[in-house]
Design a protein around this nucleic acid. Structure first.
Lengths: 105, 105
DNA sequence: TATACCTATGTAGCAAGCTACTTGACTAGT
DNA sequence: ACTAGTCAAGTAGCTTGCTACATAGGTATA
């Protein structure tokens, strides 16, 4: 069995937020209340550790919606397993950010 | 009006835990899942900033219960006001640790 | 009588988080 | 033209948090 990384409470919150549909940095910031100086470096580390993967939104879409392009994330298989393990470590995590709370994806 | 300190999520969790009846370090650790290297330094800073105040349990009580003496904390008035402000900043905090969850004080 | 576990507090040194910015394009008011 | 606001990503440098360990008395067990 693969050795799963132990996540900090913050990293677990971010993973949970992405999993629940807040799939870009700014949305994670709004949902969690965490500042940009926390969220963006943390998401880089999560990507470095291959728990999430990112791709830039097409410029044409951003242009059409008149805003900066977003960097979209999704969990890898390792990310899903690590999140599952983190729910045991932080049992109150799922309550904080559930998929139901996501209005617009 | 007094300038209230802005608490980190962790510091707010600890304040909330103490307020909810987890009035010594080890109990806060168990409730929150945070490690001792987080909880004890954080509680020192909270006391330095006069949001909580501590006093050592009487040795005779610890002896009678056959365990090390505990350092008991309680919120100051400034601590209660800061916690109240933090509930606005972290609206999901109260759900995490409510007084009802405390079995033994 | 070692070895191990439990309660409880604590610290050194490294990793992660936060404050206060920056960049950049677009919107709206004065 | 200038100021201010919004969305979105990002960074430098200081502060906080975490891992791993220490201390210390208690119980339990082989």
């Amino acid at each position: 069995m693969a050795m799963e990384a132990k996540l900090s409470h913050t990293a677990a919150m971010i993973l949970q937020a992405v999993n629940a549909g807040h799939i870009y940095g700014f949305s994670v910031m709004e949902m969690t209340g965490l500042p940009s100086g926390t969220v963006y470096p943390a998401m880089r580390r999560l990507e470095r550790d291959e728990l999430i993967r990112s791709h830039w939104e097409q410029q044409s879409i951003a242009d059409a919606e008149q805003r900066p392009p977003r960097k979209y994330y999704k969990l890898t298989r390792a990310g899903k397993m690590t999140l599952e393990a983190s729910r045991k470590r932080y049992p109150l995590l799922a309550k904080l950010i559930s998929s139901e709370q996501v209005e617009s994806i």
